[in-house]
Design a protein around this nucleic acid. Structure first.
Lengths: 347, 347
DNA sequence: TGCAGCATCCAAAGCGCTTTGACATCGAGT
DNA sequence: ACTCGATGTCAAAGCGCTTTGGATGCTGCA
């Protein structure tokens, strides 16, 4: 059933039917109702392609997911982010089109998306420090919103981000307040903007107390359980081991916990852990009481906000950049406690 | 730059240019080269919407992701699956459009996708036992391939699935061979087809040795770390606790491991664990030696195969269903060992 | 009564592509 | 010399919608 058929069925012109369905004023309320009724009855749905061609609007948002050719890892936060964004698109009648792109030919992918014209805007995932995609997108003139930011990039773009610097600064201060002085940072890959900021926050909090970060207590890498485990295992073997760990993800924190167990140490007493928690559906940080003390920020909510911001910009034609800085909350769980005094260690 | 402009630039008709670019035979090799050259030079890219309208093909595949309203969990295997499918689509020039649908109005979503006509086919995710979507899709006449199967559904559909029954049957036999008799099953939600089959495999292996499953040793639920932990904690408190666990995911297995640690038991000696491993990028089961003995099957590969099968069917117009049953491999890691004899428990 | 003004509706022209059917041109076959 | 089949090209008709620019009939007011 297409528009022409529906129209002839109703004894009306396609023009009128189209207008009735799209809420234009130049159609009487009576016929509008009649049309709506018939549309429902015949289960009429305008053909998307035709609509798109006629209006010039794709009614779709692109998500370009970089797939690192070196790491061979799909970012696990991705699924939750998409779920959040998807909600918003569904309500607004937009489609979500995904493109998985090996980071080797990202530029080609963006240019192609642009010239094929099958999306009205895109969400940029996983921005790096000095990310080359931002100037490219600016040049292409396609509306976009970045999930995250890019240190060193011209700041004239729109983004939604967690205040990573502040989150890790607060987490570090929290540990310092508990008396910890040897604090390890198990970070994400520091070419990624979020990881770089977290490190800044960490170092800033230390500096504020006249301390400086010990390079032996900082690692940067893929945020997996194995990473957390291996890092903790090595660091705990140092002559002057850390009494606390700051990790970038729930999985890393679980890895650190395993390393503690392996040497019979108790989390929260012998060694403290604070992690960042993206509140992923399948990686809940406990229920009543959090397992880990954490800086918490919902990645799904970030997805919603990114999507909403992009749609707003597209529909209003806005050009002035918009920003949304989400503060993480610091929730205290069972993984932190006062730094053990030397004497505690031996009793 | 659109087709008409390009054509006039070349002094040719749109017809000829279109044919040249799409590899039709009725155009001389000379002009074909000339056109290709000009297209490259002007960076011409045919407008997707127009092409779609003209050809009646959307050049896009839909993925409808059910979002359980009760569990509020996005299936974590999803990201890897998508990455695999995305590879295939990219090579074939198809888009991937995602729709996240609360399971409350799935039917509406499928009908809408059908009548909007913005995809040429869809991939069905997370089939349940007696899944109502399959007859619906059959009725709608939209090509589809299921990732998984549906027990009790009319078998005339196409699917790609892991042999879950066989995998869990083998894993159970493996534990039985090691002398284990009290084996626990920490399963996924058993309304999901894959979980139902795994349970069948488990029970079948026991039955083959004249044993039967103890209901107290079987749980079914969301496959999270907490689930594994809580199940193991409770079961190990039973008067006749299990000596081995069979879990449905890497995360569940990690939870079981935590419960072991908490009571000072050693994995692989006091209690054995076998898990299913979907080979997710961010949940690697060790590197040189697997952490857990596991039935292993790549979900990303499944994504590739689903996508390839669907494209093949769409382009060939095939109607006879196609199936692909992937066998999981049983890899032995450090989490399994012979069942402790009673005396072992006390020395 | 005549006419401006409004409320409704419609015909037709796109949107940018593919594809059908026709039309030149030319060399080969008779 | 004439026909015929390739070969290469094009004009024009869609695909299913939106949107512009009228038409038509009716109301209200001078």
């Amino acid at each position: 059933m297409n528009l022409k058929q529906l129209a002839s069925e109703l004894g009306l012109s396609p023009t009128t039917v189209s207008r009735a369905l799209n809420g234009y004023p130049e159609v009487s309320e009576a016929t509008r109702l009649r049309v709506a009724e018939a549309a429902r009855h015949y289960n009429y749905r305008p053909n998307t392609q035709a609509k798109r061609l006629a209006t010039g609007r794709a009614m779709a948002i692109g998500h370009i997911i970089p797939l690192s050719t070196r790491h061979e890892i799909v970012n696990p936060v991705f699924a939750d982010f998409i779920a959040g964004a998807g909600e918003v698109y569904a309500r607004a009648g937009y489609d979500m089109v995904l493109t998985i792109v090996p980071d080797s030919d990202e530029e080609r992918a963006y240019r192609e998306v642009r010239s094929k014209g099958n999306v009205d805007g895109i969400i940029v995932h996983g921005p790096k420090v000095h990310d080359a995609r931002l100037p490219l997108l600016e040049e292409l003139g396609l509306p976009f919103v970045v999930h995250g930011r890019s240190l060193g990039a011209d700041p004239g773009y729109s983004w939604v981000d967690v205040n990573n610097t502040r989150a890790f600064e607060r987490a570090t201060s929290f540990l310092l307040d508990l008396g910890h002085r040897r604090i390890a940072l198990v970070n994400g890959i520091e070419t990624m903007d979020f990881a770089a900021r977290r490190r800044h926050g960490f170092e800033r909090a230390l500096a504020a107390r006249g301390l400086s970060a010990d390079p032996a207590l900082m690692v940067s890498g893929e945020m997996t359980e194995a990473q957390g485990h291996d890092a903790a295992r090595d660091m705990l073997d140092l002559p002057d081991p850390p009494t606390a760990f700051l990790t970038a993800s729930f999985l890393s924190a679980m890895g650190v916990r395993r390393a503690l167990w392996e040497r019979g140490m108790r989390m929260g007493r012998d060694v403290s852990i604070v992690t960042h928690d993206d509140e992923l559906g399948y990686l809940r940080n406990g229920f009543d009481e959090p397992i880990f003390t954490a800086t918490r920020s919902s990645v799904r909510e970030a997805g919603r906000r990114c999507a909403a911001m992009l749609l707003r910009r597209i529909e209003s034609g806005a050009s002035a950049p918009e920003n949304d800085l989400m503060e993480a909350t610091l929730v205290v769980g069972a993984s932190t406690g006062p730094a053990p005094r030397r004497s505690d260690m031996t009793d």
